[in-house]
Computed example of a mutant assay.
Amino acid sequence: MDELLLVGRVLLSLACVVGLIWYLARRFGASRPAADDREPRVRVVDRQALGRTSGVAVVAVGSRRLLVGFGEQQVALLTELGPVVERPPTVGADAVVPAPRTPDTAAAAGPLAGSVLSPQTWRATVRALQDRTVRR
């Protein structure tokens, strides 16, 4: 009988403590602003690997775009990119249809031609690194 009374007291005490924690969390936990409200949202827009553990990435922080380099030991800001301007698609009779590009003209033209984000730049970099690291 004494053991049953002891188990009942322990369960009642445990229920009181859990109820008090739940009440305090509901009462005072909602007054703090959420993390999304305090800090701008951070997301990775795109990334390109340069090696096994290194590469570059375009990171969106709020309305800013940052180009960062990352490696095994560190992350470094390379540059801040211009804001992204969204253009509505042109639809109608006077819409310009671009001519199909051949692979040679695709490398020379385009908004990313010659920049760090251009696929042709990365292909040339990989080819140069492969040429330097070929064992003979």
Rank of each mutant, 00 (worst) to 15 (best):
R132Q: 13
G82E: 15
L78Y: 05
V18T: 05
S54A: 08
W22E: 11
P33E: 12
L81F: 03
D46Q: 07
R64V: 01
G71W: 01
E39Q: 09
T102V: 10
Q48F: 04
R38C: 06
V75G: 00
A107I: 09
A107K: 09
G19D: 01
R65S: 04
G114Y: 00
G82M: 08
R27G: 03
A25D: 15
S13A: 15
G55N: 00
V91F: 07
R32N: 08
V17L: 11
R41N: 07
P111S: 06
T105R: 14
Y23Q: 10
L77Y: 06
P83M: 02
E39R: 06
P40G: 07
W22A: 11
C16P: 03
R43Q: 10
V84F: 04
R101E: 13
R135I: 10
A109C: 04
T125L: 14
T125Q: 14
A95E: 10
D131H: 12
R43H: 08
G92M: 03
A49S: 12
T79H: 04
R101H: 04
T53V: 07
Y23T: 12
V7F: 07
V97P: 02
G19V: 02
T102D: 15
R101K: 06
T53I: 03
V126N: 02
R52G: 02
V96A: 10
A107Q: 10
E72Q: 06
L20V: 13
R136V: 11
Q74H: 05
